[in-house]
Computed example of a mutant assay.
Amino acid sequence: MHPADHADLRARVGKALSAFLTEQRALLSGIDPALADVADAIDDFVLGGGKRLRPAFAYWGYRAAGGEDDDAVVAAVAALEFVQASALMHDDLIDGSDTRRGVPAVHRRFATRHTGAGWQGGADAFGAAAAVLLGDLCLVWSDELLHTSGLDAAAIGRARPVFDLMRTEVTIGQYLDVHTQVTGDTSVRRASTVARYKSAKYTVERPLLLGAAIADAPPAVSTTLSGYGLPLGEAFQLRDDVLGVFGDPATTGKPAGDDLREGKRTYLVAAAFDAADRARADALSAGLGDPGLTADDVTRLRDIIVGTGALDRTERRIADLTAAALAALDAVGLDPQATAILRDLAAAATSRTA
C-alpha cells in the first residue's frame, strides 16, 4: 500500500476535490458555455493524476499532533492540490514544457483547442493566456475549498497564516528559479535556495505545519514537524532534479533530459559546474538551456554530470537529508501511527521514479 492510501486518504481527497469541482462546473456553465473548456481542463488536471503527497503530509501532520480523523480536515488539506495545480500550470508555461504527466501541458492544450477551432489570433498566445488564468483560478479555488471545508472558524484562523506563507514562498521560489536561469548563477548555494522555496517548503514542511495548526499543536510538535519536513522537502526536490535529467520518460511523463533543455540551474547541475574542469564546464554551459538538444546531446551532458561526480554527490545529499528528517521525528512524542506513516512517506518521496 502506498503511504498516501492509509486512512483511505487518496480516495477521500479525490472525493472532496470531485465534489468541489462539480459545484464549480455548475457555476461556470451558468455563466457561459465557453467555460466548459475551463472546467474540463481543470477537472482533467486535478482529478487525472498526482500523488496527493501534500494532502498526505498535511493530514498526517494533523494526526501526528493528536488530531482525530475528520472529513472536514480531509477537505481542507485537499485544497493543497489546487495550489499544486496552479504552480504546475504556471511552471509548465514558464519552462515551455510540452507535457505534464504524459499529456499536453495546459498551455499546449488550449493552443491546440484554438487551432482546431480555427479561432483568430495566435494559438500560442491564447494557450499562454489560458494557462495563466487557469493557474490563477486554481489558486483562488484553493482558498475557497479551505474556507468551505467544514473546519470551524478557529481552526481556519490557525491554518490561514501557514497557508498564506506557503503560497508566498512557492511564488517567490518560482521567481528565484527564473532569475537564476537568466543570470546564469551556477552556485550550489543559489540552487539550494531555489529548491527550498520553490518546492521543499510547500511540498512537505508547510503542509505538515498546516495540519499541525488545524490540530492546535503545541510549539514543540510544530518544531519537530518542521525539523522533519524541511530536509525531507529538499530531498524530494533533489530527487525531482535527478529525474528531470535521468528519469525514464515512460514513468515521468516528461521527455528525457527536459530539465537540460529548459536550462534549469538545479543542485545537480550546480554540483557538476562546481567540480567540472574548464572543458566540461564550457560544454555543459553551451548545452544547458538549448531547446534543440538531441538525444545524443542529452547523453553527452548526462555523461558530464556523472563524470564530475555530481550525480553521486546529489544522491549522497538526498540520503543525508532524508536521514536528518527521520531523526527529527524522535525529538518529541508524536502519535505512533502517524509517525510510522510519516516515515513511509519519507521513503515514497525520496525513492520515487516519477
Rank of each mutant, 00 (worst) to 15 (best):
T299G: 07
R313K: 09
G102W: 10
W141N: 04
A286T: 05
A85Y: 02
E205M: 14
L47Q: 13
T171A: 15
K198P: 04
T115V: 11
A4P: 05
G150F: 06
L9S: 01
L134W: 02
R160M: 11
R300S: 14
G50H: 05
F246S: 12
A129S: 14
Y62F: 15
D8E: 15
A279L: 10
G116F: 00
T350W: 12
P291G: 01
G14Q: 12
P249I: 11
L27W: 08
R261G: 11
K15P: 01
A275L: 10
R108L: 07
L151F: 08
L53S: 11
R261D: 08
D330K: 03
A78P: 02
L210T: 12
A272G: 08
D274V: 00
D330I: 05
L225C: 11
D248L: 05
G157A: 14
T203K: 00
L134A: 13
D297I: 04
A256Y: 03
F45G: 08
A39C: 02
D91S: 09
Q237N: 06
E81F: 07
V245A: 07
V242Y: 13
D303E: 15
E262K: 03
L28R: 11
P255V: 03
I42F: 02
Y197C: 04
A324R: 14
P231F: 10
G233Q: 12
D143W: 13
R302C: 08
D282C: 01
D282H: 11
P104Q: 05
A279M: 03
A34P: 02
V182P: 02
A154V: 15
G121I: 07
D290F: 03
G96Q: 05
L17Y: 09
L88T: 12
A129H: 11
T314E: 01
T322G: 04
S97Q: 07
A325R: 07
Y267P: 00
I31M: 07
T180Q: 15
P161D: 09
F110T: 00
G211I: 08
R265M: 15
L17W: 06
H147G: 02
A36Q: 13
K15Q: 15
V132N: 13
Y175P: 00
L311A: 08
Q237T: 08
A117R: 15
G14A: 06
P219T: 10
V170D: 01
I94E: 12
A217R: 10
R316E: 14
G48T: 04
D40P: 01
A131Y: 00
L27Y: 08
L80N: 12
D136P: 06
D152R: 01
R261L: 06
R343M: 05
L151E: 09
Q181A: 14
S222R: 15
L293A: 12
S187K: 07
V182D: 07
R108S: 02
A65M: 09
H147T: 08
G49N: 01
A283T: 02
T252W: 03
I305K: 02
A111L: 01
R10N: 05
V332N: 13
V103R: 15
V306S: 09
T180P: 01
A340D: 15
L146V: 05
T112R: 15
D274Y: 07
L88M: 10
G307Q: 04
S86I: 01
A153G: 11
A338T: 07
T22C: 06
A85H: 08
L137S: 12
V140T: 13
D330C: 11
P219Q: 09
E144Y: 10
K15S: 13
V74W: 07
A111M: 10
G244A: 08
D344H: 04
H2L: 14
S86Q: 13
S18Q: 13
T314W: 00
P55V: 08
